[in-house]
């Protein structure tokens, strides 16, 4: 399966998804003008991967900021992954800057009611 690469801007994430390994890296800040439009190709790629590859998926988040409409889109992704996790292996690694309590909290709250293994990994500056 093809990789998905989207270069980051000040207000959209750096996306680097590898079709061969199922490793998905998402990094940066997200407050696009229209979050649904930005996350659509990302969600499409994940759905294609799930239908075609049926292999383990690893998501690495290294986020600085998510506005609320982006948070909702990431939650949409988590809901897809939760279902996939029933019969496949999914791991979410949530990297956060050590003193960034807001982004840690965002991740924790998204994971709280989800049945997906999530690791919270502090990054020292």
């Amino acid at each position: 399966m093809k990789n998905l690469i989207i270069e980051k801007t000040k207000y959209t994430l750096d996306i680097d998804f590898e079709g061969a390994t199922g490793i998905m890296n998402m990094a940066g800040s997200s407050y696009p003008e229209n979050a649904i439009d930005f996350y659509k190709p990302i969600i499409n790629w994940i759905e294609d991967f799930i239908n075609v590859e049926k292999k383990p998926l690893t998501l690495n988040f290294r986020l600085n900021y998510l506005n609320t409409s982006s948070t909702k889109c990431i939650l949409d992704i988590f809901e897809i992954l939760e279902e996939y996790n029933e019969d496949n292996e999914v791991v979410v690694n949530w990297y956060y800057e050590e003193d960034d309590e807001d982004i840690l909290e965002t991740g924790e709250e998204m994971g709280e009611d989800m049945d997906i293994p999530m690791n919270f990994i502090p990054i020292k500056e």
């Binding site: 909702k72 939650l75 709250e109």
Partner: peptide, 20 residues
């Protein structure tokens, strides 16, 4: 409240998350 709202389906045509 935030968690409940965030998990509600988006109203038609609404761009935001409804939890601003």
């Amino acid at each position: 409240y935030y968690k409940e709202k965030l998990r509600e389906p988006r109203p038609e045509g609404k761009k935001g998350g409804g939890v601003g």
